[in-house]
């Protein structure tokens, strides 16, 4: 068809169609505008500003659904800034300024796996051949480790870690403190609840989570805490208390003298490789 053959009639139809579209576009546009005005949602400017300053990792370590949820919680006066472990101190100071609250000085923390019972130290109850996930494994009789508190080593923490800071060697997860940002994702993901935060400068940590009595622990794990309490008795600074057959450290009192490391008959209190700058001077 030749372009010139288009008659005036066709042009008229095109004009009418264009007119109809322009008219209805205008109508619908006005309608959307009116609805938008009537149902306007007031977005709190504070929330957007807080959100801008948060790390944006959306790790869920604070217990909220994501950074936006945490920002809304902070803006409404709930929650605590220290619940977020990923945001840098400078950004946190900005948020504290926005909220009009004093920023509490806090020490950086890292996550540690409180278990040393790899496959060479702690045996297996049964052979697990299912889905390679700790959550699935733990749903079968609490997992296939002889110790009911031990690391299952299927690597749920490794899978969820946003920083790739976790390695699983010989059925035992290990956190690289240099990479760990202490977001708390792994703490929430571990079905055995054996990952915990400790201060980044902590000189030692307890690599066992077993609350069983000494005799029961002896039977299942070569490196399990038997709850003898020698560490607590011998600590010159009173930094250790025994709770549920496990030593609990008060890191504010610990000076890093390593007496507990030497006294522990099971060698479950492990010395950490703390960067010298962060290490406390011995009192």
């Amino acid at each position: 068809m030749n372009l010139l053959a288009i008659t005036a009639e066709t042009w008229k139809t095109v004009g009418i169609v264009a007119g109809i579209f322009a008219g209805s576009a205008l109508l619908i546009g006005i309608l959307i505008l009116v609805v938008g005005k009537v149902f306007k949602v007031d977005v709190d400017e504070k929330v957007t500003k807080i959100l801008e300053n948060l790390a944006g990792a959306n790790c869920g370590g604070c217990g909220c659904s994501g950074c936006s949820g945490f920002a809304a919680k902070l803006a409404s006066g709930g929650g605590d800034l220290s619940d977020c472990h990923v945001t840098s101190p400078e950004k946190k100071a900005e948020i504290a300024k926005l909220l009009g609250v004093e920023l509490k000085a806090e020490e950086p923390t890292v996550a540690v796996v409180k278990c040393n019972g790899g496959s060479e130290n702690c045996g297996e109850k049964f052979e697990y051949k299912g889905n390679p996930s700790c959550a699935s494994c733990a749903s079968l009789l609490g997992g296939n480790k002889l110790c009911s508190y031990g690391c299952l080593g299927c690597g749920d923490c490794k899978a969820i870690c946003p920083e790739n800071a976790i390695e699983v060697k010989g059925k035992l997860a290990e956190v690289d403190p240099d990479k760990c940002v202490s977001c708390g994702s792994c703490i929430a993901a571990c079905p055995k609840h054996i990952i915990e935060r400790i201060p980044a400068s902590a000189p030692v940590y307890v690599a066992c989570s077993s609350k069983c009595k000494g005799k029961d622990v002896m039977g299942v794990c070569k490196v399990g805490c038997i709850g003898c309490g020698l560490c607590a008795k011998n600590c010159p600074h009173g930094a250790i208390t025994m709770v549920d057959n496990l030593p609990v450290f008060d890191y504010s009192k610990c000076t890093g003298c390593l007496t507990c490391v030497q006294k522990c008959p099971r060698k479950i209190i492990l010395k950490r490789d703390v960067p010298s700058a962060a290490q406390k001077t011995e009192a």
Binding site: I16, V17, I20, A25, I32, V35, G36, V41
Partner: peptide, 28 residues
């Protein structure tokens, strides 16, 4: 007499409708 414009018109109406619905739900 412009029934032949159905597809383009329906897209028009539906898009507008969904936009309005979204705003209304967000508010209510």
């Amino acid at each position: 007499g412009f029934g032949f414009l159905e597809i383009i018109f329906f897209i028009f109406i539906i898009a507008a409708l969904v936009q309005m619905l979204e705003k209304i739900i967000q508010k209510l």
